[in-house]
Deep mutational scan, measured.
Amino acid sequence: MKVIFLKDVKGKGKKGEIKNVPDGYARNFLFKKGLAIEATPANLKELE
């Protein structure tokens, strides 16, 4: 799953980066803790 990092996550990504991460990791950790959001076309446009 492609995500946009909202905060730095040690060993995974830095704020503003767009990366592919495992689906479970994104849903169960990154999204729940507010560390990242899904890289949807709308979210990507908002980032620019």
Rank of each mutant, 00 (worst) to 15 (best):
G13H: 11
K2V: 14
I18A: 04
K10E: 12
I37G: 02
I18H: 04
R27V: 12
K7R: 13
L6S: 02
K19W: 08
E17G: 02
L6P: 00
N20S: 13
I18L: 06
A42F: 09
K12W: 15
G11R: 05
I18D: 01
N43L: 11
F29Y: 15
A26T: 07
T40Q: 04
L44Q: 07
A36G: 04
E17D: 13
N20H: 14
E38N: 04
V9N: 01
D23E: 15
D23T: 15
A36T: 02
N28P: 01
P41H: 10
K12A: 14
K14I: 09
G16E: 02
K7I: 12
L30H: 00
A39L: 08
I37T: 07
L35V: 04
F31Q: 02
G13M: 03
E17Y: 03
L47T: 09
D23W: 13
K15T: 08
K14E: 06
K32Q: 09
V9I: 09
I37E: 05
D8E: 08
L6F: 03
P41G: 09
P22Q: 10
P41F: 10
K7P: 00
A42W: 07
D8H: 08
V9P: 00
A36P: 00
I37W: 06
E48A: 14
I4W: 03
G24E: 14
L35W: 13
M1A: 05
A39S: 04
K10D: 11
K2R: 15
T40V: 05
A36H: 00
R27S: 07
L44S: 05
L6W: 02
K12E: 10
G16R: 03
N28R: 11
K12V: 15
K7M: 12
F29S: 04
D23P: 14
A26W: 08
A39R: 01
F5G: 01
K14R: 13
N20P: 07
L35N: 01
G24A: 14
K19S: 07
K12T: 11
I4P: 00
G34W: 06
N28S: 09
F5H: 00
V3L: 03
E17T: 07
K15G: 03
K15Y: 05
N43A: 14
I37H: 04
I18Q: 04
G34I: 03
V21R: 01
N20K: 12
V3E: 00
K32H: 08
L47D: 06
R27K: 13
M1D: 03
P41T: 10
K2I: 14
G34K: 10
E46H: 11
V9G: 01
K7L: 10
F31T: 03
N28T: 08
F5I: 01
G16S: 04
N20Y: 15
V3T: 01
K2Y: 14
